[in-house]
Amino acid sequence: MTAAFGSQWRSMKGKREGWRDLSPMRRREALYGLAFVSPWIIGLLLFSFFPFVASFVLSFTRYDVINPPVWIGLANYNEIFSGDSLFLKSLGNTALYVVGSVAIRIVLAFSLAMLLNSKVRFLGVWRTLFYIPSTVPIVAISMVWIYILNARYGLLNWFLSLLGQGRIRWLSSPAYAMSGLLVMSTTWVGVTMIIFLAGLQNIPEEYYDAARIDGASWLQRLLRVTLPLLTPTIFLNILINIISAFQVFNQVFIMTQGGPRDATRTYMLHLYNHAFEFLPPQMGYASALAWILFIILFAFTAIVVLTSDRWVFYNN
């Protein structure tokens, strides 16, 4: 997808055709094209472009939905950066979740994909088993994990006790609550794994044959053949997972409501509280929070995309 983004960007440069340069036949074709894509263009304006601009404007106002918005300049931003202790707390928690869950997912998904790519029997069965929990609705999987992470009788503590580990209060202690959510994030490893597996299966067998003839060990083949050729997939997976992890909301809302003692209060939960739970609602304030999140995400995406020239290897 992001590779598509890159190639789209490259193919666009230098080509500029205006309406006037078109022949009548081409003009007819262009009209058809625009007619076909028009639903999406209207949707883009209504559901992406307008809200995007509107939330920027709103972020400079105080707005409680009932009374008309009041322009207050940078007051929301001032409040966020100087008076809102939960802003930094939630941002820190979210950063922790992003780093932890992205690392877990990339490493685990890659390892599982490597296992499945080593000519195993019943490939489809294993793949299905790893993927099943990803299909379960978030509310349902959260319900189950509330009990898995239960300190007294949870499955996780039972499993750990078999390994000789004492009880851990996963969701009920501030020190471990975020770790509990990170353990739970392994649930969705299957999606990333499938993308990795497809990437691995695209690597031509000849490369490995050549490496073997040259006497490359398993580790050398992994480091010199597999990983470099897989960088576009790794790049894509990191990007997708960063964007979704930054906006983690559902399981936190359902399982902990940000507790205990704000240990799992994530950025989206903080934003949601201001917009939809506070009375009166603070839509302007929440919009400012949304825009800060957008800028942070944009910066991250830009860093990943801009550095990708150095470490992502495109085979074309």
Binding site: Q8, M12, E29, I41, S48, Q247, A275, M283
Partner: peptide, 28 residues
């Protein structure tokens, strides 16, 4: 199927919206 002016730019925007966080759209 069709060629039309700014098609590639529009498609690029389409891909970009996939990466736009829903938080920014939510409130307006």
């Amino acid at each position: 199927r069709f060629r039309f002016p700014y098609r590639d730019l529009l498609f690029l925007i389409l891909l970009a919206t996939l990466m736009l966080p829903f938080a920014v759209r939510l409130i307006p």
